[in-house]
Design a protein around this nucleic acid. Sequence first.
RNA 1: GGCCGGGUAGCUCAGUCGGCAGAGCACGCGCCUGAAAAGCGCGGGGUCACCGGAUCGACGCCGGUCCCGGCCA
Length: 308
Amino acid sequence: MTAPHLAIVGPTASGKSALALEVACAFGDVEIVSIDSMQVYRGLDIGTAKPTPAERAAVPHHLVDVADPGDEWSVARFQREARVAIADIERRGHRALLVGGTGLYVQAVIDPLAIPPEDRAVRDALLARTATPVGLAAAYDALQRADPAAAARIEPGNARRVARALEVLEITGRPFSSFGAGLQEFGPPVFPVRIAGVWLPRPVLNDRIERRFALMRAAGLVDEVRGLAGRGALSRTARQAIGYREVLAHLDGEMPVVDDAFAAAVVRTRQFARRQRMWFRRDPRIRWFGASGNPCSILPALLASWSA
RNA sequence: GGCCGGGUAGCUCAGUCGGCAGAGCACGCGCCUGAAAAGCGCGGGGUCACCGGAUCGACGCCGGUCCCGGCCA
């Protein structure tokens, strides 16, 4: 039995990655596993705040650059690959340091989530049918009859999730709800792990978000997006990355002024950070570490907590 | 200076034969099992530019003032 794995979660731009590198240097026996739905894509570097080659040379990083920008990524794929990576890390006698802000992915990795199978064609057909209010209402009705438990967990207006539940029903013949109680239950993780949450005051975080986008812009985000767009199609999943979607809209002429694109990206990042806060807040297994300014000031407390 | 158009929520704008003001976005609060940097629900907000007038009653009608845009001089 090895020592427990570690995890750092929190909203975007809260300084998790920098902290993780410090922790890795301090401990020496940890490898970083990025829990990030967009850093998996090769070529999406600047806008995803991906660790630099130097950082990746200093500390091994996993689940970064494992997909082509044209790939449709998914939670299930992440769950599989992350668990393989963690098993490998254990085999080397090391500890995994999970770092990231994609809440669903964190749970897919550390919780015993049985993710039902999918059939994209079936779901796309269902989504087409639920595209109108009338069609959605009919679909939700059908779900209520076939799987009341799932319907109770899904808002009637959420076409995405209604379609997904019906999809599972259609291709497996089993109710969606039979695959698990949902994400409300925070039982013991599938492996021992200590989870730290990074908390910053909202004005500080908002300020960091704004600065970071300015830096990304200066670092050539527009050119990066232009290159990706020119090289071929970005998948539906990849093209919605914050910053990429907005710059793409600018390059397509839908948003003529670049500054507007970046302003929109900043707004969407703030909204994203809020959803992340909501998501992580309800997980009682997270131990929170707050900083009033520089998130690296958390480091001593974090190391002390994890060394105990 | 003259003529025309406009001044309504933080922003962009809708609106009513005169009957206690709406939408989208933003913002706030929340939800979440194969797109999750996605998707969805709820909510707070306005002396309707200002001053005066007629009216039971004005954001709306009348008169004036200020500001913005366009055309003419």
